[in-house]
Design a protein around this nucleic acid. Sequence first.
DNA 1: AATGAATGAGGTTTCATTCAT
DNA 2: TATGAATGAAACCTCATTCAT
Lengths: 217, 217, 217, 217
Amino acid sequence: MSEKEILTRKERERAFRRQEIMNAAKPLFASKGFNQTTLEEIAESAEFGKGTLYNYFENKEEIYFSVISEFVSRLSQIIDEAIDSSESFVEYIQKSIRDLFHFCIEDQSGYILFVREYSKINTETIIKDTEVYAKEHGLNFERELNVFRQAAEDGIICSKRPERTFMMYRMTSFSTIHNIIVSSCHKSTEEINIDEEIEIFSDFILNGIIKHPRSIN
Amino acid sequence: MSEKEILTRKERERAFRRQEIMNAAKPLFASKGFNQTTLEEIAESAEFGKGTLYNYFENKEEIYFSVISEFVSRLSQIIDEAIDSSESFVEYIQKSIRDLFHFCIEDQSGYILFVREYSKINTETIIKDTEVYAKEHGLNFERELNVFRQAAEDGIICSKRPERTFMMYRMTSFSTIHNIIVSSCHKSTEEINIDEEIEIFSDFILNGIIKHPRSIN
Amino acid sequence: MSEKEILTRKERERAFRRQEIMNAAKPLFASKGFNQTTLEEIAESAEFGKGTLYNYFENKEEIYFSVISEFVSRLSQIIDEAIDSSESFVEYIQKSIRDLFHFCIEDQSGYILFVREYSKINTETIIKDTEVYAKEHGLNFERELNVFRQAAEDGIICSKRPERTFMMYRMTSFSTIHNIIVSSCHKSTEEINIDEEIEIFSDFILNGIIKHPRSIN
Amino acid sequence: MSEKEILTRKERERAFRRQEIMNAAKPLFASKGFNQTTLEEIAESAEFGKGTLYNYFENKEEIYFSVISEFVSRLSQIIDEAIDSSESFVEYIQKSIRDLFHFCIEDQSGYILFVREYSKINTETIIKDTEVYAKEHGLNFERELNVFRQAAEDGIICSKRPERTFMMYRMTSFSTIHNIIVSSCHKSTEEINIDEEIEIFSDFILNGIIKHPRSIN
DNA sequence: AATGAATGAGGTTTCATTCAT
DNA sequence: TATGAATGAAACCTCATTCAT
């Protein structure tokens, strides 16, 4: 029996309103940033009074990090599923890229907030050490890292330092998604074809930019 | 005879003090962000009174963007030089990666500010359209883009969409540098070997992550 | 049933506090001017915190112009009533002078602020074109002007340019009231007799300064 | 032999530069007010360095009051001349109105500054008591007042309180001139005819606004 | 539980005045 | 004597948080 089922009606209502506030805050934080988003705006968007927010969250920061935390949980799940359901390294790469891209483009606001904090590029909130931060939210890079280590041992990838290779792969994924989102905002006319982007990116990751005698794909 | 030589002593002193203020502001903006950095801090760090700053800059924003502008100018120059002095595409890639990495790691604060604005991830300043912004500061992506287009025509790179490939290459460069800088901040004990990082990254870009029958390099 | 009656208790309290702030600000603005009056002083005088003022007014200017606006509305009403209730030109002149003097001397601070702005002598606020300004606040010189035009047609006043005559009459009224107020401030011992002042002024306006064979009055 | 002649060349140059600064400051103070005019603007307009001003004046206020003082001296002289050269009360009134109007409209900036201070409507400078102020600058209302007292004794004017009548006359003169100046600023198309204005005003003062059996004029 | 009025610390910016050159 | 760089007090305004209702 899961924990959820033993929530009372009051607790369920409380959780529901908490979520409503987070949903209202997310696009505001994403588009305007932490400091530039006022509690008044969040309250108005959530159709609550300003003071009510403090019945559900300690302070502004807690709202902010709760939003990100929620995103990270789901992100983590997606990666776990990709690992669990793949039978080869290449399949895992392709699957995780595809699922990650779709998920992030689905929830652009969440993604932007996540990458802003995670890349440590944000300066409006106290920067937390990535590892602490990742653990707090259950983001499990260790499992992925092990996949890369195993692939190195198996001779599937050539790098002598799979940790570095993994980091580059991860960073590159995030910045490419970021780039797609930004592009789609600014050039609405030129419709972005997500599946094409995914294919180009997968090829870039697997084969690099130089033409090789025979491509794996 | 260049214009610089006909600056009067006063003008030279003025330019010097302007630079001093920018140098004082740069690491503050980089570590704390735009809003979190107060003019008082900048003034104190520059060893000037608060009001003095306004004799050299219109307002806080002008200090901020002047710092970035200076970085972009030098960045632009480095890329131009790499293009001009390379005889093949692969040489250009290797050279530009090497020079870019060294330059950015030399001026970490400037780099962080640049990437924060340029990636449109920053929310504290009015985000300018990348292209406008790039032109304003003389950042010339068009030239690099043409290098990639030519390489595609020549069959050196396999992508059917060299613009996308270039963008991924650029993004990936920046996030890798970013990652190195962040790592070096947090794990100062584990000394970062820049040249090794450059080699790994060059290989990653040129060949991807999958082992190929024969590597170009 | 008027709209006022359907104000909720909250709305009534809000309006009341708004008025309190205006009442606190009025004598300060009148005695010290716009720039020389600080928000801190207004807040202290109104027995509110500094920030509270911003819950009722957009900014300092809005407080200032609200005070004047309130005065102008009441001034306008007084003149309208004098026109409506008078049966001859001379009666209207005497009545309007009497009511105007009493009203302005009752609310000296309001009057000083009004005349400062209206005479375009003030340089601390952006000077608005008198006509625009008058219309905004419902000050209706046009009606009075028509009374003068009619009197000229009827041969009651001799001027060939009743517009000018009206303007002189208005200006003179204001500066005389101003003079009375200033005098009463500085020479508090010598009690000012308002009714005598009104009589002298009415005579001055109607008959000029030269003795005539027979005076209307 | 006058004092002027024993000024050394240095002293003459000093006086000349003092005057230059005042001339530069006058229109600025008139159009923008005391606080809104910066020393930097005055210095620039006078083609001096900011610091140089302090070699000629104690501080900003001294510049301001020197400008007004100069105006008052000349104003005083004009009224004295009108009194001295007139043979009747009516002639004095007509002459003084004419000369005053022409003088003030010639030096609009000076006039505006004078009336702003003198009417005690200004709040940007410490308001000085009119009498002190008048004496300081040699403005001699006492002589004019005596002319009115004499006219009352002689039965030329009807008022039992010639002091009040004089004050109204003075105030009215100033506000009418003020009105003309303001009008000429805002309605440049409709050319103002000074001589016509003077005639209308003289008539207004002497005869009031009501048509009398026979007009003096 | 919900509200929003009240608060005041803290930020940017202006500008008269000083003073070393 | 002329200069203008340096200064810092003082002003307006924002907004997260508290708390009485």
